[in-house]
Computed example of a mutant assay.
Amino acid sequence: MARPIIVTGAAGFIGRNTVAELNARGENEIILVDELGKDEKWKDLVGLRYEDIVTPEEFLGLIEDGAFVNARSVIHLGACSATTEKDADFLVRNNYQYTRVLCNWALSNEIRFVYASSAATYGDGAEGYDDADAVTPTLKPLNMYGYSKQMFDLWALKHHLFNSAPDRSHETSGSNIVGLKYFNVFGPYEDHKGDMRSVVSKSYEQIRGTGEVKLFKSYRPEYKDGEQMRDFIYVKDAVDVTLHFALQPADAPGGLLNCGTGKARTWIDLATAVFDAMGLPPKIEFIEMPEQLQGKYQYFTQANDAKLRAAGYTKPFTSLEDGVREYIQEYYLRREG
């Protein structure tokens, strides 16, 4: 019997694309963990091949009863990813405590564990975007979502779970885990995220409806309007990085790693790429930023990818223009055909 691969958040954005890529690689023995709810998220699973789908709560009950101990890996992408979520207790339970339970279970059964951290842990970037272990405790996230992700990063560091160490407190046979700090991921199947969708998705919708894109004005003199910068990563690359580490043995090297291209681009670059993909001239309007965002806005993000490269990921990343073109033309335009 094939050893299953467990994907949490499997009906989500990165999760759905991860399952599709596993299928493309011939992997069908997959356990999906997610809540489909009452919206249309289930439609994104149509056409995928997997063994079973269970809710997060059901999954906890199953592993308590001894299920899936022969799993090959856990790819833990399930979380509340809303940066505007105000319920701190909910975020602690969902993003931190649940992750601890899964991690401890995976380690005790020598199962590879890869989980989603976030570039939101870097806060305003005052400490840079270096994923070195010594830097992680100094970071100051700007919102509770980012802090809920940092909580687990810090717990894993405290217990030496990223690399084998003689003083590690968890009694395992040298299993390591991998945390991936996803930067600004964009691509197909993010529609259900609503306001948390990428600006690529939002821009396409705006252009289709009004012929123009609205971007936030800058409130810092060193950045002109629209020249705030982000590290945008195409979801296919984010999935490839994820599977590069998830499909390794449990005792393979681990680490807390940036998952970004290492190249910051402006919002104007992004909007222009969307217009180009749609065959239209750029038309951009700059609007006021909501007050609640003004003190919690990242003006610049750029992954330091040296540690990722040193960990063995060597493939080049898709350019912003190529990723946006494929996304718009192969997903939106073909679908609306």
Rank of each mutant, 00 (worst) to 15 (best):
E190H: 03
A120C: 11
K149W: 01
E29H: 09
T210S: 12
T314S: 13
G260N: 01
I328R: 04
K263F: 13
Y122V: 09
N94W: 10
E127V: 12
Y115C: 00
C103L: 02
A24M: 08
I233G: 06
G179E: 05
Y332M: 08
E291I: 10
A311Y: 01
C80V: 15
T266L: 08
D87R: 01
G123H: 00
T83H: 08
L102A: 03
Y145E: 07
K41F: 08
F286G: 06
S81C: 15
Q150V: 06
I177L: 05
A306L: 06
Y204R: 03
A82N: 15
T99R: 01
T242D: 07
E127D: 15
Y129H: 03
D52W: 08
Q294K: 09
P4S: 06
G194A: 04
I14T: 08
D89K: 08
P188L: 00
D231Q: 03
E57V: 12
A134E: 15
P290E: 01
A273P: 12
G312V: 02
P166C: 07
K214N: 12
D44V: 14
L333M: 12
T138E: 14
K181C: 14
K224L: 09
R49S: 09
A252V: 06
Y96A: 09
K202E: 09
N95G: 04
T272G: 11
V54E: 11
N176Q: 15
A250E: 12
Y299C: 04
N17M: 11
V54M: 08
I14A: 07
N258A: 03
K181A: 14
Y182Q: 09
T138G: 08
G337C: 09
L333K: 00
G312K: 01
A306H: 05
R309C: 07
E57P: 11
I53G: 09
I284S: 01
M289Y: 02
R112D: 07
K236H: 14
C259V: 09
H76M: 04
P282M: 02
L48C: 10
T261N: 08
K315A: 10
R25S: 11
A311N: 01
E58F: 02
I287G: 03
Q248M: 14
